Simulated scan of single mutants.
Amino acid sequence: MAELMEELSQVKGEEPGVATSKDVRVHPTPEPTGHKPVDAPTGTPTVVVDDLHIVYRVFSATSDHEKGNAVTALVRMLKRQGRPQMKEVHAVKGVSFVAYHGDAIGIVGRNGSGKSTLLRAIAGLLPPHSGAVFTDGQPSLLGVNAALMRELTGERNIVLGCYAMGMTPAEVKEKYQEIVDFSGIDEFVQLPMSTYSSGMGARLRFAISSAKTHDVLLIDEALATGDREFRKKSQERIKQIRESAGTVFLVSHDHKVIEETCNRVIWLHKGKIKMDGDPKEVMTAYNKG
């Protein structure tokens, strides 16, 4: 235990940032004050979030006439006025936890609680204001690595999306029909993405992103747009990813999906972890709160 604590203190002494390392060791999960501790898993850690703070800086407007657009910016220049007052938004406040191989972690909370911000920080898309995120392998945020272009057909998006995830031409050819069948877009695969509904686009993103086994897969509300059949297939795919020693983070307002898919739930409230533990226990407390 002494060696683990010493190692954790060394991690905290490094520069804040997002690091990818194969040398991440097991760290004890920090126990927030007043939270019920999670039973320590025996697997290998894939994500270590250490006292993470994310701060946005936005320019606020005091009236509708001062809202940011080209006309108001030109008026301010002509009148030699300064820029609107800058405001800091503290989206994530001191979040710490450890995720392990085989975990499917649901993240719940009210709108504005920091759920999507936390996923983007784990994916390396947002730099920490302080604290750090360490990952074993490359995290993949659903819809980022497999970015879809509206002007291109579904077929071209599948090919380019798979290439963006590092798949070889042979792997793309092998997975192509499976992706089409899983997404359920059928003959629309030959049409531009601009003709797709939002649900079709979300299903295709999930089908592309989950066609490859990821070390860490981050899913933000992607399962909320499909019908019952698609949700069932998506849950089965997530279970397959877990069984292949991957880690899945799932943000969803569908509590049933969270309970049926995840083995652990983190409840965020105003940027802080309010509860971390068994899905049924956390969701019961969340619904009461």
Results as ranks from 00 to 15, higher is better:
V189Y: 02
A123P: 08
T225H: 10
S9R: 13
R120N: 09
V257F: 06
T42H: 15
I241S: 04
H101T: 11
A99L: 05
V265L: 08
V133N: 06
H65L: 15
Q81T: 08
E14T: 15
G184N: 08
K239G: 13
V98E: 05
S209V: 06
A70H: 10
V95L: 10
S183R: 06
G184K: 09
V75W: 13
N145Y: 13
V55P: 00
A104M: 12
H53L: 05
K233Q: 13
L52C: 10
L4T: 12
A285V: 09
P37V: 01
E229W: 15
S197R: 11
M283F: 02
I107M: 09
M275N: 07
S9W: 05
M77Y: 11
V98S: 05
N157D: 04
D254E: 13
G166K: 02
K36P: 00
F59K: 12
I241T: 07
G13N: 15
H129C: 03
K22Q: 11
A202E: 04
I238F: 08
I238W: 06
E7P: 00
L204M: 09
E88S: 07
R264M: 08
S198Q: 12
L4R: 14
K212N: 00
V108P: 05
R242L: 07
L148Q: 13
N287L: 14
S130P: 10
S60V: 08
D51T: 14
K87A: 01
A123D: 06
D39M: 12
I238H: 07
R25M: 04
A211Q: 02
S9A: 14
A285M: 03
S9M: 15
H65G: 02
A91E: 02
G112W: 08
E15L: 15
I241M: 14
G201E: 14
R25P: 00
G82S: 13
K270R: 13
L191T: 10
S183G: 09
V26I: 14
R110Q: 09
D103G: 01
G246T: 01
V58C: 06
H90W: 12
D51L: 11
H53M: 04
T213L: 02
V248R: 01
L141E: 03
H269E: 12
M283E: 01
H65P: 00
A40E: 12
R237G: 03
R80G: 00
V108M: 04
I208P: 04
Y163G: 01
A19M: 15
S96T: 08
L204V: 07
R237N: 09
V89H: 06
A104F: 09
E229Y: 15
L148W: 10
